[in-house]
């Protein structure tokens, strides 16, 4: 019994003290699922000696984390929400870093024939007309907001859809799993789709409409509201993210031979 106690306390006390610079960055699931962070973070660590801890959440929660001061900066992709965040004074500024795009995924047989659509809006109208099963993130994320924006651009109200429209209230991966299980249509960011391991009968059916472009922006949390925010480190990271090194890493990042992101920082 005493030996047991001794061993337990040894394990408990062995809390490894972490030294070095650490900052917390809230990012969206789609960014994390792309795998790009696995390339960038080690380089940041190497160049700046900075450990960036990623909180992988939906855009809604990322903004909330920044607002509460629980992270030092956020990297998201929902312009409207970002502008509101800045207008309310929660962030210092917005820096565009890169973009990727959203794609339409659906059953290989494509019952709604969206692969023949000439625009994203037209694709959605076809899905609605066919009442083909459609999975929505339903989690207030950037992707979800984008999807809702497209529905309204198509003059349709997602709130009034019946059985075929399923809001799952989950992250991109979980939503893709659901779509795969139901053989349903879904809007996904390209990166999450390419990295997704459970494709089943799903296939990429439509992409390329410029409205599907997905701009990522970096927003430092306002240190006037939260004095504990590590503004120096946040600034260091920002300069690194817009550097030539970041540009080449981002532009050359590929999955299955496909380029995912386009660097567009100014």
């Amino acid at each position: 019994m005493k030996r047991l106690m001794a061993m337990m306390s040894a394990i408990v006390l062995a809390t490894a003290a972490q030294a070095g610079d650490v900052m917390k960055l809230a990012v969206t699931t789609s960014f994390h699922n792309s795998g790009l962070s696995d390339v960038l973070l080690p380089e940041i660590q190497k160049d700046l000696g900075l450990e960036v801890q990623l909180l992988v959440v939906g855009t809604g929660q990322a903004l909330k984390l920044g607002q509460a001061g629980d992270v030092d900066a956020i990297l998201v992709h929902s312009r409207k929400a970002e502008d509101k965040f800045l207008a309310e004074g929660f962030g210092t500024h917005r820096r565009e870093i890169m973009y990727n795009d959203f794609v339409f995924i659906g059953p290989d047989s494509d019952p709604a024939q969206i692969s023949e659509a000439d625009s994203a809006v037209a694709a959605l109208q076809k899905i609605e007309a066919a009442k083909a099963p459609f999975v929505s993130r339903g989690d207030d994320s950037g992707t979800h907001k984008k999807e809702l924006g497209l529905w309204s651009a198509a003059d349709l109200d997602a709130g009034e859809f019946d059985g075929w429209y399923r809001a799952v209230g989950a992250g991109m991966g979980a939503a893709l799993n659901t779509a795969s299980g139901m053989n349903a249509y879904i809007i996904s960011d390209r990166a999450s789709w390419l990295n997704f391991g459970n494709k089943g009968d799903l296939a990429l059916l439509y992409a390329g409409d410029p409205v599907l472009f997905n701009q990522y922006a970096y927003l430092p949390v306002n240190p006037d509201l939260h004095s504990h925010v590590k503004s120096d480190l946040v600034a260091d990271l920002e300069s690194w993210l817009v550097s030539d090194k970041a540009k080449s890493l981002i532009d050359t990042y590929k999955i299955n031979g496909e380029t995912l992101f386009t660097f567009n920082a100014k």
Binding site: L54, L55, G171, G173, N195
Partner: peptide, 23 residues
């Protein structure tokens, strides 16, 4: 928060990998 190298543990890693479809 399931932060890699900081707060990721077995159960949260499982949830994450399931989310990526890597069963």
């Amino acid at each position: 928060g399931n932060i890699d190298n900081a707060t990721r543990v077995l159960t949260t890693a499982i949830a994450l990998e399931t989310g990526k479809g890597d069963f």
